[in-house]
Write a protein that binds this DNA or RNA. Sequence first.
DNA 1: AAGCCGATCAACCGCAATGTT
DNA 2: CAACATTGCGGTTGATCGGCT
Length: 281
Amino acid sequence: MGRSPCCDKNGVKKGPWTAEEDQKLIDYIRFHGPGNWRILPKNAGLQRCGKSCRLRWTNYLRPDIKRGRFSFEEEEIIIQLHSVMGNKWSAIAARLPGRTDNEIKNHWNTHIRKRLIRSGIDPVTHSPRLDLLDLSSLLGALFNQPNFSSVATHASSLLNPDVLRLASLLLPLHNPNTVYSSNLDQNLQTPITSSESSQPQAESTTPTNNETSSFELMNARLDDVASADVLPPLSESFDLDSLMSTPMSSPQQDSIEAGANSNSFFDFGFPEDFILDDFMF
DNA sequence: AAGCCGATCAACCGCAATGTT
DNA sequence: CAACATTGCGGTTGATCGGCT
């Protein structure tokens, strides 16, 4: 089935609406009501296609539209709804009386999205952006704790295991001179990477001059430590790319809910036996 | 004063879903 | 049931404006 053109291109005006055109459209809809957009422009004496008339009415001329700035409460509602619905602007608009989907979409892209990014929140997943977090500073201190085993247990409860595991792999790459193994549970099998170490650690301490070799090394390490006990294995759904960068928008918005779940790397629910002081140095 | 640039938002485009014949 | 028409939706574009140099 071929796609039918929305209107006859000949003699159809495009671009901004004039006040006169607005008035014609308002007068017609007041008398006849909205709908029949195909024949509306002809009957209303407008040189526009029906689609353009419908958009002008629903997004601008409708009498129940609330103009003006979005309130803080409205923004919070939008953020909450977007975290559940994704880019379902019409569904979000249906829960915000007086606001159109187009208006909400524009406001999201020009204000809210930027605000979330500035706050370190991924506007797609509504999770903290890991590419903005310095995992080595976050976890390096944990890994240097004398009682690492208990710390690791707590950390495993706090963080998504995939992230924790990845961080344990990345740390030696990030800072080759850092000593880990003396403080680590031996099950981690993370090599000593100190310049004072008597054991050469060619594999993980090799300075890398480019990103590619680091990633190759990291991928090799993913396999090498697959049998570690402290941290669970990487899940099959784990996607390294998702940690490295966050796209502006996902083409697969249908899977937004699944995506939100699979990308919830941080679990901020504290275990019952969690003692905050254990993490204070 | 003029030009540049980023922000904003109305409007358009293309596609999909739904309705009608 | 197929063909076509209509409507709705989300992504993108481009005109406009204000701030800055």
